[in-house]
Design a protein around this nucleic acid. Structure first.
Lengths: 150, 150
DNA sequence: TGGAATAATGATAACCGTTATCAATATGGC
DNA sequence: GCCATATTGATAACGGTTATCATTATTCCA
Protein backbone atom coordinates (compact mmCIF):
# COMPACT_ATOMS: atom_id res chain seq x y z
CA UNK A 1 0.00 0.00 0.00
CA UNK A 2 1.34 3.38 -0.96
CA UNK A 3 0.95 6.23 1.47
CA UNK A 4 0.81 9.71 0.07
CA UNK A 5 0.38 12.61 2.44
CA UNK A 6 -1.75 15.20 0.79
CA UNK A 7 0.44 15.43 -2.24
CA UNK A 8 -2.25 15.90 -4.85
CA UNK A 9 -4.77 18.47 -5.97
CA UNK A 10 -3.60 21.26 -3.74
CA UNK A 11 -3.93 24.68 -5.26
CA UNK A 12 -0.81 26.79 -4.87
CA UNK A 13 -0.84 29.65 -2.41
CA UNK A 14 -3.08 28.17 0.24
CA UNK A 15 -1.91 28.43 3.82
CA UNK A 16 0.27 25.66 5.09
CA UNK A 17 1.96 24.82 8.32
CA UNK A 18 4.53 22.69 6.63
CA UNK A 19 5.83 22.49 3.12
CA UNK A 20 3.94 19.36 2.24
CA UNK A 21 1.87 20.05 -0.83
CA UNK A 22 -1.79 20.32 0.10
CA UNK A 23 -1.43 20.57 3.86
CA UNK A 24 -3.97 22.77 5.55
CA UNK A 25 -3.33 24.72 8.70
CA UNK A 26 -4.67 23.13 11.83
CA UNK A 27 -4.47 23.92 15.49
CA UNK A 28 -3.37 20.37 16.37
CA UNK A 29 -0.42 20.47 14.02
CA UNK A 30 0.49 23.90 15.39
CA UNK A 31 0.27 22.54 18.90
CA UNK A 32 2.70 19.76 18.05
CA UNK A 33 5.11 22.29 16.59
CA UNK A 34 4.85 24.42 19.70
CA UNK A 35 5.50 21.46 21.98
CA UNK A 36 8.57 20.54 20.01
CA UNK A 37 9.99 24.01 19.78
CA UNK A 38 9.41 24.85 23.43
CA UNK A 39 10.22 21.46 24.96
CA UNK A 40 13.53 19.98 26.01
CA UNK A 41 13.92 17.99 22.81
CA UNK A 42 14.35 14.23 22.33
CA UNK A 43 10.73 13.64 23.21
CA UNK A 44 8.95 10.52 22.10
CA UNK A 45 5.48 10.48 20.61
CA UNK A 46 3.79 9.71 23.90
CA UNK A 47 5.50 12.61 25.66
CA UNK A 48 4.61 14.93 22.82
CA UNK A 49 1.05 13.72 23.00
CA UNK A 50 0.82 14.46 26.72
CA UNK A 51 2.31 17.92 26.31
CA UNK A 52 0.01 18.67 23.38
CA UNK A 53 -3.03 17.65 25.42
CA UNK A 54 -2.26 20.42 27.89
CA UNK A 55 -2.66 22.87 25.04
CA UNK A 56 -5.45 21.08 23.23
CA UNK A 57 -7.35 18.64 25.44
CA UNK A 58 -8.73 15.85 23.33
CA UNK A 59 -6.00 15.73 20.73
CA UNK A 60 -5.49 12.10 19.78
CA UNK A 61 -2.28 10.14 19.61
CA UNK A 62 -2.91 9.34 15.95
CA UNK A 63 -3.01 13.03 15.15
CA UNK A 64 0.31 13.49 16.89
CA UNK A 65 1.88 10.72 14.84
CA UNK A 66 0.41 12.14 11.65
CA UNK A 67 1.67 15.62 12.45
CA UNK A 68 5.13 14.30 13.24
CA UNK A 69 5.27 12.39 9.99
CA UNK A 70 4.16 15.44 8.06
CA UNK A 71 6.65 17.69 9.82
CA UNK A 72 9.47 15.22 9.33
CA UNK A 73 8.59 14.92 5.66
CA UNK A 74 9.04 18.62 5.07
CA UNK A 75 12.17 18.89 7.24
CA UNK A 76 10.71 20.92 10.09
CA UNK A 77 11.29 18.09 12.55
CA UNK A 78 13.91 15.41 12.66
CA UNK A 79 13.32 11.92 13.95
CA UNK A 80 15.89 9.59 15.35
CA UNK A 81 15.58 6.11 16.73
CA UNK A 82 17.99 5.12 19.49
CA UNK A 83 18.72 1.59 20.63
CA UNK A 84 15.45 1.24 22.52
CA UNK A 85 13.63 1.40 19.19
CA UNK A 86 11.36 4.25 20.25
CA UNK A 87 11.45 7.25 17.94
CA UNK A 88 12.46 10.65 19.38
CA UNK A 89 11.71 13.95 17.78
CA UNK A 90 13.37 17.32 17.82
CA UNK A 91 12.84 20.53 15.89
CA UNK A 92 15.06 20.64 12.85
CA UNK A 93 15.45 23.55 10.51
CA UNK A 94 17.55 26.02 12.39
CA UNK A 95 19.20 23.30 14.42
CA UNK A 96 22.37 21.78 13.05
CA UNK A 97 23.12 18.11 12.80
CA UNK A 98 24.44 16.61 16.01
CA UNK A 99 25.16 13.28 17.57
CA UNK A 100 23.88 12.02 20.89
CA UNK A 101 25.42 11.03 24.18
CA UNK A 102 22.87 8.88 25.97
CA UNK A 103 23.07 8.06 29.64
CA UNK A 104 22.46 4.40 30.37
CA UNK A 105 21.44 5.19 33.93
CA UNK A 106 19.03 8.11 33.76
CA UNK A 107 18.25 8.03 30.04
CA UNK A 108 19.09 11.67 29.43
CA UNK A 109 20.34 12.89 26.05
CA UNK A 110 23.18 15.27 25.40
CA UNK A 111 23.84 16.74 21.99
CA UNK A 112 27.36 16.89 20.69
CA UNK A 113 29.24 17.37 17.46
CA UNK A 114 32.84 16.82 16.54
CA UNK A 115 33.66 18.17 13.09
CA UNK A 116 36.62 15.86 12.84
CA UNK A 117 34.45 12.81 13.41
CA UNK A 118 32.09 14.07 10.73
CA UNK A 119 34.96 14.39 8.31
CA UNK A 120 36.38 10.99 9.13
CA UNK A 121 32.99 9.43 8.56
CA UNK A 122 32.98 10.81 5.06
CA UNK A 123 36.43 9.36 4.57
CA UNK A 124 35.39 5.98 5.93
CA UNK A 125 32.35 5.86 3.68
CA UNK A 126 34.35 6.90 0.64
CA UNK A 127 36.91 4.21 1.41
CA UNK A 128 34.14 1.62 1.07
CA UNK A 129 32.62 3.26 -1.98
CA UNK A 130 29.55 4.55 -0.18
CA UNK A 131 27.71 7.75 -0.96
CA UNK A 132 26.55 9.02 2.45
CA UNK A 133 23.00 10.22 2.80
CA UNK A 134 22.93 10.34 6.59
CA UNK A 135 24.55 8.89 9.62
CA UNK A 136 23.87 8.24 13.22
CA UNK A 137 26.31 8.25 16.08
CA UNK A 138 25.21 7.43 19.56
CA UNK A 139 27.53 7.11 22.51
CA UNK A 140 26.15 5.23 25.50
CA UNK A 141 27.57 5.62 28.96
CA UNK A 142 27.18 7.44 32.24
CA UNK A 143 26.46 11.14 32.20
CA UNK A 144 28.49 13.34 34.57
CA UNK A 145 25.64 13.45 37.05
CA UNK A 146 25.10 9.69 37.18
CA UNK A 147 28.76 8.78 37.22
CA UNK A 148 29.14 10.83 40.40
CA UNK A 149 26.39 8.85 42.09
CA UNK A 150 28.05 5.48 41.56
CA UNK B 1 8.34 -7.98 36.44
CA UNK B 2 11.91 -9.14 36.84
CA UNK B 3 13.24 -11.63 34.34
CA UNK B 4 15.99 -13.93 35.52
CA UNK B 5 17.40 -16.44 33.10
CA UNK B 6 18.20 -19.54 35.04
CA UNK B 7 20.35 -17.74 37.49
CA UNK B 8 19.55 -19.79 40.56
CA UNK B 9 20.27 -23.19 41.97
CA UNK B 10 22.66 -24.28 39.31
CA UNK B 11 25.37 -26.55 40.57
CA UNK B 12 28.83 -25.69 39.31
CA UNK B 13 30.41 -27.85 36.66
CA UNK B 14 27.36 -28.76 34.65
CA UNK B 15 27.64 -28.41 30.87
CA UNK B 16 26.67 -25.11 29.39
CA UNK B 17 26.45 -23.65 25.96
CA UNK B 18 26.76 -20.16 27.24
CA UNK B 19 28.11 -18.65 30.38
CA UNK B 20 24.74 -17.93 31.89
CA UNK B 21 24.58 -19.59 35.25
CA UNK B 22 22.30 -22.58 35.13
CA UNK B 23 22.02 -22.89 31.37
CA UNK B 24 21.72 -26.41 30.08
CA UNK B 25 22.98 -27.58 26.75
CA UNK B 26 20.35 -27.96 24.09
CA UNK B 27 20.32 -28.73 20.41
CA UNK B 28 18.18 -25.67 19.62
CA UNK B 29 20.59 -23.29 21.22
CA UNK B 30 23.46 -25.01 19.45
CA UNK B 31 21.59 -24.68 16.17
CA UNK B 32 21.20 -20.94 16.70
CA UNK B 33 24.91 -20.63 17.40
CA UNK B 34 25.71 -22.58 14.24
CA UNK B 35 23.43 -20.42 12.14
CA UNK B 36 25.06 -17.29 13.46
CA UNK B 37 28.61 -18.47 13.07
CA UNK B 38 28.12 -19.87 9.58
CA UNK B 39 25.78 -17.21 8.21
CA UNK B 40 26.52 -13.89 6.56
CA UNK B 41 25.95 -11.90 9.76
CA UNK B 42 23.49 -9.09 10.42
CA UNK B 43 20.60 -11.51 10.42
CA UNK B 44 17.35 -10.66 12.14
CA UNK B 45 15.45 -13.09 14.35
CA UNK B 46 13.14 -14.20 11.57
CA UNK B 47 16.04 -15.02 9.26
CA UNK B 48 17.81 -16.89 12.03
CA UNK B 49 14.61 -18.79 12.72
CA UNK B 50 14.28 -19.86 9.09
CA UNK B 51 17.89 -20.96 8.90
CA UNK B 52 17.59 -22.84 12.18
CA UNK B 53 14.51 -24.66 10.92
CA UNK B 54 16.59 -26.19 8.15
CA UNK B 55 18.77 -27.77 10.82
CA UNK B 56 16.03 -28.50 13.33
CA UNK B 57 12.56 -28.53 11.79
CA UNK B 58 10.00 -27.50 14.35
CA UNK B 59 12.16 -25.11 16.30
CA UNK B 60 9.95 -22.23 17.40
CA UNK B 61 10.52 -18.52 17.05
CA UNK B 62 10.25 -18.07 20.81
CA UNK B 63 13.14 -20.47 21.31
CA UNK B 64 15.22 -18.49 18.84
CA UNK B 65 14.54 -15.27 20.72
CA UNK B 66 15.33 -16.96 24.03
CA UNK B 67 18.56 -18.39 22.68
CA UNK B 68 19.59 -15.02 21.29
CA UNK B 69 18.90 -13.28 24.56
CA UNK B 70 20.88 -15.88 26.45
CA UNK B 71 23.79 -15.71 24.00
CA UNK B 72 23.79 -11.92 24.07
CA UNK B 73 23.75 -11.97 27.85
CA UNK B 74 26.93 -13.98 28.02
CA UNK B 75 28.68 -12.09 25.22
CA UNK B 76 28.72 -14.83 22.59
CA UNK B 77 26.45 -12.83 20.30
CA UNK B 78 26.06 -9.14 19.84
CA UNK B 79 22.81 -7.43 19.00
CA UNK B 80 22.39 -4.15 17.26
CA UNK B 81 19.30 -2.25 16.30
CA UNK B 82 19.49 -0.07 13.18
CA UNK B 83 17.07 2.66 12.23
CA UNK B 84 14.37 0.23 11.12
CA UNK B 85 14.04 -0.88 14.72
CA UNK B 86 14.54 -4.56 13.92
CA UNK B 87 17.33 -6.20 15.91
CA UNK B 88 20.20 -7.83 14.00
CA UNK B 89 22.55 -10.38 15.46
CA UNK B 90 26.11 -11.37 14.78
CA UNK B 91 28.58 -13.62 16.52
CA UNK B 92 30.69 -11.71 18.98
CA UNK B 93 33.62 -13.07 20.91
CA UNK B 94 36.36 -13.39 18.35
CA UNK B 95 34.95 -10.58 16.27
CA UNK B 96 36.14 -7.09 17.00
CA UNK B 97 33.93 -4.08 17.39
CA UNK B 98 32.94 -2.45 14.14
CA UNK B 99 30.55 0.13 12.77
CA UNK B 100 28.09 -0.36 9.95
CA UNK B 101 27.60 1.10 6.52
CA UNK B 102 24.00 0.44 5.55
CA UNK B 103 22.74 0.75 2.00
CA UNK B 104 19.46 2.63 1.81
CA UNK B 105 18.66 0.98 -1.52
CA UNK B 106 19.38 -2.72 -1.12
CA UNK B 107 19.63 -2.87 2.67
CA UNK B 108 23.02 -4.57 2.71
CA UNK B 109 25.42 -4.11 5.61
CA UNK B 110 29.14 -3.46 5.40
CA UNK B 111 31.38 -3.58 8.42
CA UNK B 112 33.99 -0.91 8.90
CA UNK B 113 36.23 0.51 11.58
CA UNK B 114 38.26 3.66 11.75
CA UNK B 115 40.54 3.73 14.78
CA UNK B 116 40.70 7.48 14.60
CA UNK B 117 36.94 7.80 14.83
CA UNK B 118 36.98 5.48 17.81
CA UNK B 119 39.56 7.66 19.51
CA UNK B 120 37.72 10.87 18.74
CA UNK B 121 34.55 9.42 20.18
CA UNK B 122 36.35 8.85 23.45
CA UNK B 123 37.52 12.43 23.33
CA UNK B 124 34.05 13.74 22.58
CA UNK B 125 32.55 11.76 25.44
CA UNK B 126 35.24 12.90 27.85
CA UNK B 127 34.65 16.48 26.82
CA UNK B 128 31.07 16.13 28.00
CA UNK B 129 31.99 14.24 31.14
CA UNK B 130 30.65 10.90 29.92
CA UNK B 131 32.07 7.51 30.77
CA UNK B 132 31.57 5.47 27.59
CA UNK B 133 30.17 1.99 27.88
CA UNK B 134 29.40 1.48 24.22
CA UNK B 135 28.67 3.35 21.06
CA UNK B 136 26.97 2.89 17.77
CA UNK B 137 27.86 4.44 14.46
CA UNK B 138 25.78 3.79 11.40
CA UNK B 139 26.34 5.42 8.08
CA UNK B 140 23.43 5.32 5.66
CA UNK B 141 23.88 5.80 1.95
CA UNK B 142 24.27 3.98 -1.34
CA UNK B 143 26.61 1.03 -1.50
CA UNK B 144 29.03 0.87 -4.46
CA UNK B 145 26.78 -1.58 -6.28
CA UNK B 146 23.60 0.46 -5.90
CA UNK B 147 25.20 3.81 -6.64
CA UNK B 148 26.28 2.42 -10.01
CA UNK B 149 22.71 1.50 -10.87
CA UNK B 150 21.35 5.00 -10.34
C1' DT C 1 19.88 -46.99 35.28
C1' DG C 2 15.97 -44.79 37.00
C1' DG C 3 13.81 -40.84 38.97
C1' DA C 4 13.40 -36.34 40.89
C1' DA C 5 14.29 -31.56 40.13
C1' DT C 6 14.21 -28.19 37.03
C1' DA C 7 15.59 -26.02 32.62
C1' DA C 8 14.08 -25.77 27.78
C1' DT C 9 10.53 -25.84 24.47
C1' DG C 10 6.41 -24.74 21.24
C1' DA C 11 2.13 -22.69 20.73
C1' DT C 12 0.07 -18.79 21.35
C1' DA C 13 -1.64 -14.78 23.88
C1' DA C 14 -0.07 -10.45 25.28
C1' DC C 15 2.49 -6.31 24.73
C1' DC C 16 3.95 -1.91 22.78
C1' DG C 17 4.95 1.51 19.50
C1' DT C 18 3.16 2.73 15.29
C1' DT C 19 0.02 2.85 11.22
C1' DA C 20 -4.44 2.14 8.71
C1' DT C 21 -9.40 2.61 8.59
C1' DC C 22 -13.51 5.11 8.65
C1' DA C 23 -17.11 8.05 9.79
C1' DA C 24 -17.49 12.71 11.50
C1' DT C 25 -15.70 17.33 11.48
C1' DA C 26 -12.99 21.39 10.15
C1' DT C 27 -10.76 24.15 6.64
C1' DG C 28 -10.16 27.04 2.58
C1' DG C 29 -11.52 28.71 -2.04
C1' DC C 30 -15.25 30.43 -4.25
C1' DG D 1 -22.60 29.92 3.00
C1' DC D 2 -21.37 25.90 0.05
C1' DC D 3 -18.57 22.45 -1.82
C1' DA D 4 -14.52 19.73 -2.12
C1' DT D 5 -11.43 17.78 0.53
C1' DA D 6 -8.00 17.69 4.32
C1' DT D 7 -7.98 16.63 9.26
C1' DT D 8 -9.40 14.37 13.23
C1' DG D 9 -10.39 10.80 17.08
C1' DA D 10 -11.45 6.27 18.18
C1' DT D 11 -10.00 2.12 17.51
C1' DA D 12 -8.61 -1.98 14.92
C1' DA D 13 -4.66 -3.79 12.88
C1' DC D 14 0.17 -4.60 12.39
C1' DG D 15 4.96 -6.40 13.28
C1' DG D 16 8.56 -7.44 16.24
C1' DT D 17 9.29 -9.11 20.70
C1' DT D 18 8.18 -11.11 25.29
C1' DA D 19 5.35 -13.70 28.75
C1' DT D 20 2.58 -17.68 29.91
C1' DC D 21 1.84 -22.37 30.55
C1' DA D 22 1.57 -27.11 29.89
C1' DT D 23 4.73 -30.48 27.98
C1' DT D 24 9.27 -32.34 27.10
C1' DA D 25 14.24 -32.76 27.70
C1' DT D 26 18.37 -32.48 30.48
C1' DT D 27 21.15 -33.07 34.46
C1' DC D 28 22.29 -34.77 38.88
C1' DC D 29 22.30 -38.18 42.16
C1' DA D 30 21.01 -42.41 44.40
Amino acid sequence: MITVINMAKRKPGSPKICDCQGARKSRRREAVVEVLSSGPGHLNAEQIHKAAQKRLPGIGIATVYRALKCLCGCGKVSEFIPADGVARYEPAGSRAHHDHLICTACGCFTEAVDPEIERLQERLAAKHGYKISSHRLEIYGLCPCCSKKV
